[in-house]
Amino acid sequence: MSKFAKGIVVGVVGTVAAVAGALLSFQKTVVEPIEVQEQKFDDNRKKAMRKSRSAHHG
């Protein structure tokens, strides 16, 4: 393999690694907090429904 071909391979591998790292970072900082917040909203909605039903049947 020539130096040029090795350089291309190393460059491609480095670029793929950088893109993968950026995607994982985006998921950890943006996507997961949104999912956690949605889960909290769902839990609160369920609690409110239970509380409402028990208040009307108590």
Rank of each mutant, 00 (worst) to 15 (best):
G21E: 01
G11N: 00
V12L: 15
V19D: 00
G11L: 01
H57W: 07
Q27G: 03
P33D: 08
A55F: 11
G21I: 05
A5W: 14
K6A: 13
L24Y: 03
A22E: 06
H56E: 12
V12I: 14
H56Q: 12
K40R: 14
K40N: 10
V13C: 07
Q39E: 10
G11R: 02
E35R: 12
E35W: 02
S25G: 10
V13I: 14
G11T: 00
G21W: 01
M49H: 10
F26H: 08
K51H: 05
S54K: 09
S2Q: 03
I8V: 15
L24R: 05
R50A: 12
D42M: 07
M1L: 10
V30S: 12
N44H: 11
K51S: 08
A20R: 02
E32V: 11
N44I: 14
A22P: 00
D42A: 08
K28P: 00
A55M: 14
Q39D: 04
M1K: 05
S54R: 13
V13F: 06
M1G: 14
V13R: 01
A48I: 07
E32H: 05
R45D: 10
G58N: 13
V13M: 02
A17H: 01
R53V: 13
S54C: 11
G58W: 15
T29V: 14
A17R: 09
D43A: 09
S52G: 15
E35C: 06
V12M: 10
K3C: 08
R50K: 14
E38G: 04
M1A: 11
P33E: 00
H57N: 12
G21P: 02
A55T: 06
S2F: 04
T15F: 07
G14H: 02
G11C: 05
K47S: 01
A5Y: 14
S25D: 04
V9E: 02
V12R: 06
R45I: 09
F26E: 04
N44M: 15
V13D: 00
M49F: 12
Q37L: 13
G58H: 15
R53W: 12
V10Q: 07
N44V: 11
A20H: 09
V31Y: 07
V13Y: 07
D42Y: 06
G58L: 15
E32S: 08
A5P: 02
F41T: 09
L24C: 11
A22N: 01
G7K: 01
A17N: 02
A18M: 05
A18D: 06
